[in-house]
């Protein structure tokens, strides 16, 4: 076989030239976009492990190098941030608020949602609609009014103020009601015939059937509480009642090295991001399920 002939043999291209070019462009754009999301986080983590002096003396870098160019990890930023944030107390505060609110929220909202879905009572639909419309008032508008009522009730400057105003959420009730409507009625009817009372049917039989939605809503409520800044800032002034967000905001404005501040940001945001990576499926799935109505 002549070599020149052999050279002419070629495998078929899977895609035409045009398609390859198009696909490359798509990937390039998407990866560039990804970088815009990854680089800031990387930079934040890396910078939090350096000293301020090192940071000021070097240009752009994504490695935790010191002023001489050696890689060194300065975990003291983190211990400094720890105490600057008063992490012990603050974390405890945040956890109390998050856990109590989430649990209470899920329980009470599902009670109401079940009532709207399955229980017949006078004025059910009107009450639902009224609540639906009125509780769609945006948060910023409710800010001052809620502050006034808390002041009036005397619960300002307390953890209660962080929990109570968010016990019910019409969004959660709406979604849970949707789920309850989808439960097979016959299961409830069978239980009724067996003699179970309404609450028992709700709690022991129907509620477990909507577990996926409960998990998703639980996660989103927990995360919302965790990140909440504005309300704790407005309603609590006692430093002992700071949450992670308010404490971090204080750290932000105080006179600390930027490396310490970034360390603080990492400490505060890391738990949620880790939970996100672990429970990705639920979080992304839940977002899409809830908001597709559009």
């Amino acid at each position: 076989m002549k070599k020149s002939e052999v050279a002419k043999l070629h495998f078929p291209r899977r895609f035409s030239a045009g398609t390859v070019a198009k696909k490359t462009v798509v990937y390039v754009v998407l990866i560039a976009l990804c970088l815009a999301f990854i680089v800031p986080y990387l930079w934040m983590i890396v910078t939090s492990l350096r000293t301020e002096m090192a940071y000021n003396s070097t240009g752009f870098t994504l490695l935790p190098i010191d002023e001489y160019g050696n890689i060194s990890f300065h975990f003291e930023n983190y211990s400094e941030a720890f105490s600057a944030l008063d992490l012990g107390t603050v974390f405890l505060n945040t956890m109390i608020v998050c856990v109590v609110n989430t649990v209470a929220n899920l329980f009470l909202n599902s009670l109401a949602a079940y009532a709207f879905a399955r229980l017949k009572f006078f004025g059910r639909n009107s009450v639902f609609r009224v609540c639906l419309f009125s509780m769609m008032v945006p948060g910023t508008v409710m800010l001052v009014p809620n502050y006034l009522i808390c002041d009036f009730l005397g619960i300002t400057d307390s953890l209660t103020a962080l929990i109570m105003p968010f016990l019910m959420s019409i969004y959660n009730i709406f979604l849970l009601r949707q789920q309850f409507l989808g439960v097979d009625k016959e299961i409830e009817e069978a239980a009724k015939i067996e003699g179970a009372g309404v609450f028992r049917i709700y709690f022991r039989i129907v509620l477990p059937l909507v577990k996926p939605m409960l998990i998703v809503l639980g996660i989103t409520t927990f995360m919302w509480n965790y990140s909440n800044y504005l309300w704790p800032y407005i309603v609590n002034t006692d430093p002992a009642l700071r949450t992670l967000s308010t404490s971090l905001a204080e750290l932000m404005g105080a006179d600390y090295d930027l490396t310490v501040k970034l360390a603080g940001a990492v400490i505060v945001s890391a738990p949620m991001i880790i939970i996100f990576f672990v429970l990705q499926k639920f979080i992304i799935g839940g977002t899409m399920a809830g908001a597709v109505k559009g």
């Binding site: 043999l9 495998f11 078929p12 899977r14």
Partner: peptide, 16 residues
Amino acid sequence: IPSPMDFNQKMYDRGR
């Protein structure tokens, strides 16, 4: 059995 060029090209058309 050695195969001729046009046969080879037809085989190559199926991919690696």
